[in-house]
Every structure is written in C-alpha cells, then in structure tokens.
C-alpha cells in the first residue's frame, strides 16, 4: 500500500513536470523557428522569453524540468543551423528571387563579397566565390539537417539527441576550421570593396560558434539525465 502511494506521488510529480515542460516548449519552439526566418524575429523573441519564464517558474516550484543550460544549448543549435540553412538554401535554390538578389547580395556587399562578386553568373546560380558553393552543397543537406533533428531530440532529453548533437558539433568544428581557412585563402576576392571588411565579418559571424561551446558541455554532462 505504502509503496503504491509513494509511486503515485512520484508519478504525479513527473506528470506535472512533463506538463510544465511541454507548456514552456509550446512558447519557445515557435519563437525560435520565427527567429530563424530573419524577418519574424521581433515576434519570435517575446514568445521565446515567455516560454523561458514559464520554465524558470516551474523550476523554482521544484518541478524537475530541463536544466536551463540544455534549453539554451538546444535552442541555440536550432537558431544556428536554421539561420545557416535559410541563407544557404536561398543561395542554392532561390538565387533569382527578388529578396535574395537584393538583401543577400546587399549583405554580401557589406560583409563578404563572396555573395556579391559575379553573383548569379555561374550556371548553377548564386555565389560566384570558389569554395563557398561547395560548402553549401556539402553542408546544408547533411550536417545542418542532422543538427536540427539532433537539437530537437536533445531538447526532449533523449539519449540519441545527446549523441547526435556530439557528432554534429564535431562536424561543426570541421566546417568552422575549413570555412575560415577558405575565407582567408580567398581574402582578396571576398573583402575587396566591401563596406566592413574583416572586422565586420568577424563581429557578424563569431556568434555562430555554438559547437565550441557545446562540445565541452556534452562531454561533461552526466549522461543519465538523458533517456533511451
């Protein structure tokens, strides 16, 4: 009898925690997705903050919700791979849309002439920079798709989410190292005539270093908080 009572008390607590977490995610996930579109960001941000405050309140009430660092990490990976995928998919398949030919080439003119110099001149369209196109083809359908899926699994505190986030974060190290090397090798092409060369690019892009912040956490977190 007593065992059953204890078990049901635990079950109630678990159920309440799950419900609180679900409710918080119902605000945070749409918020994060809107923020990745680069246009609906001002709407998405308050939704995201509202979800975070719900989760914080639940944690203060003693419910066992996801740790805040996991929430930040999971959603940051969603933002980082979402923003990258949207920019690069536009350049890959929608290079002749008006929005791409104005805003993406304008961005290129300001920070990285890879997105401006001889734009839409290759038969495949989009960037004319050697290397850049190859990174797009190589990364968007592989690592960025995997990263989005892994982040969702991670936010659900699934073991496979944790494992695949480790895999794709190491991928992240590879593409950061390769991408910056490519950028430096073709620096004349990519920085000549841009509005804010070098310093502008670094300030704009440095906040995509998610993998470097994620790897130390993923390798030191107690794996038992993730379930099969």
């Amino acid at each position: 009898m007593e065992r059953a009572a204890v078990a049901s008390g635990y079950d109630v607590h678990q159920e309440q925690s799950r419900e609180a977490q679900r409710q918080a995610d119902r605000w945070m996930l749409p918020g994060a997705i809107m923020m990745t579109t680069a246009i609906l960001g001002p709407i998405g941000f308050p939704l995201f903050l509202k979800g975070m405050s719900i989760q914080r309140k639940a944690a203060l009430q003693g419910l066992s919700v996801r740790p805040m660092i996991c929430t930040l990490l999971g959603y940051l990976v969603i933002m980082d791979s979402g923003l990258n995928s949207i920019g690069w998919s536009l350049d890959l398949v929608a290079h002749h849309s008006l929005i791409n030919r104005t805003l993406v080439t304008a961005w290129g003119n300001m920070f990285d002439a890879g997105y401006y110099w001889h734009y839409n001149e290759l038969w495949i369209g989009g960037t004319g920079a050697p290397g850049e196109k190859s990174w797009e083809i190589g990364l968007v359908p592989t690592v960025f798709c995997m990263r989005l899926a892994a982040a969702i699994g991670f936010l659900q505190m699934k073991r496979w989410g944790h494992q695949w986030l480790i895999v794709t974060c190491w991928f992240g190290v590879i593409y950061w190292v390769g991408y910056v090397a490519n950028m430096t090798m073709f620096a004349d092409l990519r920085y000549t005539g841009v509005v804010f060369p070098v310093i502008g690019w670094w300030i704009y892009d440095i906040f995509y270093i998610t993998p470097f912040l994620a790897i130390p956490y993923l390798h030191t977190v107690n794996r038992e908080i993730f379930s099969d």
Binding site: M35, T36, T37, A38, G41, P42, G44, F45, F48, M68, I69, L72, L73, Y75, L76, M79, D80, L83, W107, Y204, F207, Y208, I209, T210, L213, P216, Y217
Partner: peptide, 19 residues
C-alpha cells in the same frame, strides 16, 4: 558555458531581427 550560450543566443536574435 551557459553565459557564453546566452550571449550567442541574444546576439543571433538581434542579428536575425535587425540585419
């Protein structure tokens, strides 16, 4: 790491909004 993540998330949100 949590501080770094918070800074990056805020920065990406601002970039996503104002670029």
């Amino acid at each position: 790491l949590q501080r770094g993540l918070f800074v990056c998330l805020t920065a990406l949100v601002l970039e996503g909004t104002f670029t």
